[in-house]
């Protein structure tokens, strides 16, 4: 699903974010990426959807050479991905329904299919009865569930989440993780950057620890921590 070989990133100001990363993630895996702030997690995540390109190395997503994609082809890579952020990134002036449908309108899906699919995913994240509410009327956990619905509405092969529970209390975080587990069980690969020790330990999934731009640990059924 995801293959990285010899990936390094040095920013223009000279700071080194990643050093010679080799990584393989198989389809259907659930992978946590942990590490202290500034370790290179964000750079790593952003490379998966080509917001940031590595200085050296190769990245393949589902067999596609990401770096060989032209600017015009990048949107088509992103249509196969579901991206979730810590701050939800919803449109406050659109209803829950429209926020999710937006992702399908943008890729020009037929309206009928859009309606059916949006209601299906809203049910999946438990927000079917809030379809006409505005994000501002909902709690943080509910807003993140909208973002998750938007990320999966186009049936992505890979869901990328950058600190999705960073703004949520532990109870709500567990709710969110249940949704992610469901998505993963349906076969979708998930890569999640997180600081949440409890969640990582509870889930018992593969953990990749990044520190100083290096993978310092990669455990199949890991716990939180990045001291090698």
């Amino acid at each position: 699903m995801l293959l990285m070989t010899g990936v390094s990133k040095t920013y223009r100001n000279g700071s080194v974010a990643l050093r010679n990363i080799d990584l393989h993630i198989k389809p259907g895996e659930f992978v946590f990426v942990v590490g202290p702030s500034g370790a290179g997690k964000s750079t790593f995540i952003k490379m998966l959807f080509k917001e940031v390109a590595p200085t050296t190395g190769k990245i393949y997503v589902d067999g596609v050479d990401v770096l060989a994609l032209t600017e015009k082809e990048v949107p088509f890579l992103r249509r196969q991905l579901g991206i979730i952020f810590q701050d939800y990134r919803l449109l406050p002036d659109r209803t829950v329904y429209d926020n999710v449908a937006f992702a399908m309108q943008v890729i020009e899906a037929p309206p009928l299919k859009t309606r059916r699919r949006v209601m299906t995913v809203l049910e999946l994240v438990g927000l079917k009865n809030r379809a006409n509410a505005y994000p501002g009327e909902l709690s943080g956990g509910e807003q993140q569930r909208i973002a998750i619905a938007r990320a999966i509405v186009n049936d992505p092969i890979l869901v990328i989440a950058d600190e999705p529970t960073g703004n949520l209390d532990p109870e709500t975080s567990m709710e969110i993780m249940r949704i992610f587990t469901g998505i993963n069980e349906s076969g979708t690969t998930i890569v999640m950057a997180t600081h949440d020790r409890e969640i990582v330990n509870f889930m018992g999934k593969r953990v990749i620890a990044i520190e100083n731009g290096l993978i310092v640990r990669d455990d199949a059924k890991g716990v939180y921590g990045y001291e090698s």
Partner: peptide, 16 residues
């Protein structure tokens, strides 16, 4: 701009 960024993330083409 928020909308534009989100559009980019969900795979809208620049022309769209």
């Amino acid at each position: 701009r928020r909308e534009v960024t989100i559009m980019k993330y969900v795979g809208a083409t620049d022309w769209f």
